[in-house]
Nucleic acid binder design. Structure first.
Lengths: 227, 227
DNA sequence: GCGGCGCGTTGAGGTGAATCAAGGCCGGTC
DNA sequence: GACCGGCCTTGATTCACCTCAACGCGCCGC
């Protein structure tokens, strides 16, 4: 089985992990594939495993008792799907299109992390950056208009995608409108209308499974805070 | 100077810190007082110090370029005012009423934390619980009506206060209406009106600097998700 | 006492997003 | 190709919250 450079969560690819540790992680990890729409884990499940995303996109979300849904984040290759410690999942995760994950048995991963202060430190930094993302998103949902939310989302998504593929004006959007809506605290019709308005103003062009930036106003997408 | 049990962040009061470590922390800490409205630190500042809150209430917030504000959280006695690592503050903090904080020089605290795997582990758990709070709040701002937000806020606030004082039907609210509004992504008039409506329905009674729960519907306040 | 100010409340009217409801497009399968 | 279903778009209307504006109240200094 070929293992690409993004097989492991990027957390484990920093300076803190030497060859011996990578070998240890490789021993722990099991690769798994999921098809689009399949659930990787659900809110409330006992976290027997931790998951790193090797390929594809995963939506992380919570369901409210009345059926409303809040998408917490979209995970990309290299991301952890949850905090590796913690004994239950606090949100659900399912595949947006086909994905590959690597699964770590929780107890052994926990032992590995706690035996290694350098990794613990990275984990703290990881948590801190997740926290900041959540606070950015909080600020966006608390203050932004529909258009501000959508523009910030596109900007952040583009920036994150840029780490995984050559930059281009074209932004792939593998998730559904409904997912974007639940992420931004809007309704799917509003997403659709806002996209349409941005297209009329020549900011974007809507293409199947994505948008293309057309305007000279890429600056507008640069300074997003959210996600 | 008398040091109450809540002088230190509760993070350091768990099993991970023995007498020697508490002595070390005591050596590092400097107590400081702030009056209501004073700023403890500002977003973007180099984080030369870390702060634990010993007494009082602090609002943590971000300012947007156009003057809008998002209150990230209200800190209570025992809370850290930010992640102790990280070299710049990602939000501002100022006192709501008079507060006492203890200040730790950042480099020395960092050294203390990193020398102590047990404390690092606690710090990871702290970060994980902050993250979960942020995600709760995200869910609330993404899905809740004005009334749901206010009710969830009251419920969470009450639950947090319960750790610091004898439980009672009376909920002190030392912060201004504007602070609550900026926390919940609403306008202060909406907070005022929503309080008034809850009072008309005999859920609460509005008193100076707080509310009193009157209805038999305390259950309603129990199952909040946000904050 | 008087006036000023910060904060909270209340009212009237406007508006952005939600809601309700068609219809269109595209990718399946038979 | 014809049908179907999921997804997306678009339109008309409604409604929750915002905006703007006035007023009340408690607290302060003078």
């Amino acid at each position: 089985m070929p293992r690409t450079s993004s097989f492991f969560p990027t957390l484990f690819c920093g300076e803190a992990c030497d060859a011996r540790e990578v070998a240890e992680l490789t021993r722990l990890a099991t690769p798994i594939r999921f098809d689009g729409g399949q659930t990787i884990f659900s809110e409330g499940d006992v976290a027997r495993s931790a998951f790193g995303l090797s390929q594809g996109v995963v939506r992380l979300y919570r369901l409210l008792p009345d059926g409303r849904r809040q998408v917490i984040a979209f995970a990309l290759a290299g991301d952890f799907l949850a905090m590796p410690l913690g004994d239950r999942f606090t949100f659900s995760a399912d595949a947006v299109g086909a994905v590959s994950v690597c699964r770590f048995p929780r107890e052994e991963l926990k032992r590995f992390i706690q035996a290694n202060p350098g990794v613990m430190r990275l984990l703290i930094e990881f948590a801190a950056s997740e926290l900041q993302s959540a606070q950015d998103q909080l600020t966006l949902l608390g203050n932004g208009s529909a258009e501000e939310r959508v523009v910030a989302f596109l900007g952040n998504w583009r920036r994150r995608m840029a780490r995984l593929m050559p930059v281009s004006q074209s932004i792939p959007l593998p998730m559904r409108r409904q997912d974007i809506a639940d992420f931004l605290g809007l309704k799917l019709e509003t997403i659709s209308r806002t996209f349409a308005r941005l297209e009329q103003r020549n900011v974007i062009r809507i293409v199947p499974h994505g948008v293309v930036l057309t305007g000279p106003e890429h600056v507008e997408l640069a300074a997003g805070s959210g996600e």
